[in-house]
Simulated scan of single mutants.
Amino acid sequence: MAQNDNLAALAAAGVSVWLDDLSRDRLNSGNLQELIDTKSVTGVTTNPSIFQAAMSKGHAYDQQLAELAARGADADSAVRTMTTDDVRNACDVFTQVYAATNSMDGRVSIEVDPRLANDTDQTIAQASELWKIVDRPNALIKIPGTKAGLPAITKAISEGISVNVTLIFSVDRYREVMAAYLAGLDQAKAAGHDLSTIRSVASFFVSRVDTEVDKRLDAIGSDEALALKGKAALANARLAYVAYQEVFDNGDTFAALASSGANPQRPLWASTGTKNPDYPDTLYVGDLVAPNTVNTMPEKTMDAFADHGEVHTDSILGRGAESQEVFDKLTAVGIDMDDVYVVLEDEGVEKFKVAWTELLDATKTQLSEASKG
């Protein structure tokens, strides 16, 4: 089967194409393998909302739920079993990709319980538990880039666990995430771990920034404010890439670790589905092209790019100064970006908590019904 030209061109420009979705149906039908074969997909990300959606539709999980009910499983353990089974099986689907890319791609992410986002010790414990349960070298454990998540990132990396840091909105927090990763690598080296086996991505959320900033610009309503709509998210991501280059391309700390086999922590563009219908549906894909990055897309966005996406290789590199000007103008019209980031992080954590709670409640009901026969 031939690869789609547009997505193949994106991959050739240095952007790993990952699917932001996973379900038992997608695995059982062979759809995931088809996406690998035809749409250059080299990885998968999941989150609580994705699992909640997957398990609320159809009957793919019915048999396993019945078996878990017969064993007396509670909702938490049942959800853990079903989600880790899906991630393990997806990791196996990506085995060849993992080998062909020297372990860089072929990655499948699973997130720690979002209710632990502000609990460092419990996040560390569950990251280790999930890593052991999935038991695949191409898994990534998702840890939120909250303040409490930062020491958990360092600890997980120090133990040789590959990590996807999620819910990053600001460049300042991204710098803290990179520092946490480097500290973890340093500790892993001291503990005798093979640094070449440790991988990490930093998931920098994109479209939600425009959603929140645009709402505030509309409220301000001036011509200067309205002229900035749709510009904050891309500028934010471009400045994040500048920070990535400073640390991993030109930084002495990483250079020393790289001589021991360490890999850079790649920027991953997340939340890349366009939420404003007035914006191009491929905006956060074609305009975020740079080497050694990942773009994790909802299938709708991936299909749109396959159909009419354009790869703009000049969309990030060399645009740091221009992006800083956008932020200077946002400040000038009265946008408090620090507040924007706080709101987005809080909303992101809460959204995943709600999805996880809904999943647990639904699973509890299904287990009860299954146990009654």
Rank of each mutant, 00 (worst) to 15 (best):
N6E: 09
L7H: 09
A11G: 08
A12Q: 14
G14T: 12
G14Q: 12
V15Y: 02
V17C: 04
W18F: 13
L22N: 05
R26E: 03
D37N: 14
V41A: 05
G43Y: 11
I50V: 14
A53I: 07
K57V: 14
D62P: 00
Q63I: 03
L65G: 01
A69P: 00
A70L: 08
G72I: 11
V79F: 06
D85F: 06
R88G: 01
A90C: 12
D92V: 03
F94I: 05
F94C: 02
V97K: 03
A99C: 01
V112A: 09
P114C: 05
L116E: 03
N118C: 00
D119E: 11
D119M: 02
L130Q: 08
I133F: 10
I141M: 06
I143Y: 11
T154F: 04
F169L: 11
R175C: 06
Y181E: 09
Y181S: 09
A183F: 01
G184W: 12
A188F: 11
A191G: 15
V206K: 01
V209L: 13
V213Y: 10
E224F: 02
A225R: 10
L226N: 15
K231G: 07
A233G: 13
A243P: 01
Y244S: 07
Y244M: 10
Q245T: 13
E246V: 03
F248D: 04
G251M: 09
G251D: 08
L257G: 03
L257I: 00
S259Q: 15
G261I: 05
A262Y: 08
N263T: 00
R266M: 11
L268W: 07
T274H: 04
K275L: 05
Y279Q: 14
P280H: 06
P280S: 13
D281K: 13
D287Y: 09
D287E: 15
L288N: 11
V289K: 05
T293W: 12
N295S: 14
T296P: 02
M297S: 10
A306K: 09
H308D: 11
H308P: 01
D314R: 06
D314W: 07
S315W: 05
G318S: 06
A321V: 13
A332M: 04
I335D: 11
M337H: 00
V342D: 15
L344G: 03
G348K: 05
V349K: 06
W356F: 14
E358K: 12
T365S: 07
S371A: 15
